[in-house]
Amino acid sequence: MEVRNPIVWFEIYIEDLDRAKKFYELVLHTKLERLLTPETTNETGGVEMITFPMDRNCPGASGALVKMEGVNAGGNSTLVYFASNDCSIDEARVDKAEGKIFRPKMSIGNYGYISLFYDTEGNMVGLHSMK
């Protein structure tokens, strides 16, 4: 049996696409891009997505910020951890990006470190690093 990483894609549901894009670009120090889907061009609304960078030749998962009619941001039970070289560096940008720290960088023993924070849409998100 082949062993694979269990996560292949994630979606973070948001209310304000531009505000959420700005938040994640600042905190994660990366560039997000709009994903054009058939729903994006639909005049009745539908689904809008902005994707995180992805390299199919690297391990791990990518995903998107998603605005979809009928799906509210925040308060869900999904928690996504983004890889970080050092949680404290990325965590330091959360307040500047208008998010809120829930739990500052803490040790999880042999598994490294995590930080937990809320984005501008009320979603709790994590960072994970080995140092």
Rank of each mutant, 00 (worst) to 15 (best):
M1W: 03
M1H: 07
E2C: 07
V3M: 10
V3K: 15
R4S: 09
R4N: 10
P6E: 04
I7A: 07
V8I: 14
V8A: 15
W9G: 09
W9M: 06
E11M: 01
E11A: 01
I12Y: 05
I14S: 11
I14M: 14
D18N: 14
D18T: 12
K21E: 05
K22P: 04
F23N: 11
F23Q: 10
Y24D: 09
Y24W: 11
Y24I: 00
Y24R: 09
L26D: 04
V27A: 09
H29L: 00
K31I: 01
K31W: 06
K31M: 07
R34L: 01
L35Y: 06
L35N: 07
L35K: 08
L36S: 08
L36R: 08
L36P: 03
P38R: 04
E39L: 02
E39D: 14
T41P: 03
N42G: 07
N42F: 07
N42M: 06
T44N: 12
T44E: 10
G45S: 07
G45Q: 10
G45N: 06
G46Y: 11
V47D: 14
E48A: 14
I50Y: 15
I50M: 15
F52Q: 13
P53V: 01
P53S: 13
P53C: 04
M54C: 11
D55C: 01
D55I: 00
R56C: 03
N57R: 14
C58V: 04
C58M: 14
P59N: 04
P59T: 00
G60A: 12
G60T: 01
S62H: 05
S62Y: 03
S62T: 13
L65W: 13
V66T: 14
K67C: 02
K67P: 02
M68C: 14
M68L: 11
M68I: 03
E69F: 08
E69D: 12
V71C: 06
N72S: 15
A73I: 00
A73S: 15
A73F: 08
A73L: 03
G74R: 10
G74W: 04
G74T: 01
G75A: 06
N76C: 13
S77D: 09
S77R: 15
S77V: 06
S77T: 12
T78R: 15
T78E: 06
V80F: 05
Y81F: 15
F82W: 11
A83T: 09
S84F: 02
N85T: 05
D86H: 13
D86P: 08
C87I: 02
C87P: 05
C87Q: 13
C87E: 13
S88D: 05
I89P: 06
E91W: 09
E91Y: 11
R93F: 06
R93D: 05
D95W: 07
A97Y: 04
A97D: 03
E98P: 11
G99I: 00
G99W: 02
K100D: 08
P104C: 09
P104R: 11
K105W: 07
M106L: 14
I108G: 02
I108D: 03
G109V: 00
Y111L: 06
Y111M: 08
Y111W: 12
Y111N: 06
L116S: 14
F117G: 09
Y118G: 05
D119W: 00
D119H: 02
E121T: 00
N123D: 09
N123W: 01
M124K: 03
M124Y: 08
M124H: 12
G126I: 01
G126S: 11
L127Y: 03
L127A: 04
H128S: 07
H128V: 02
M130H: 10
K131M: 10
K131R: 10
K131A: 09
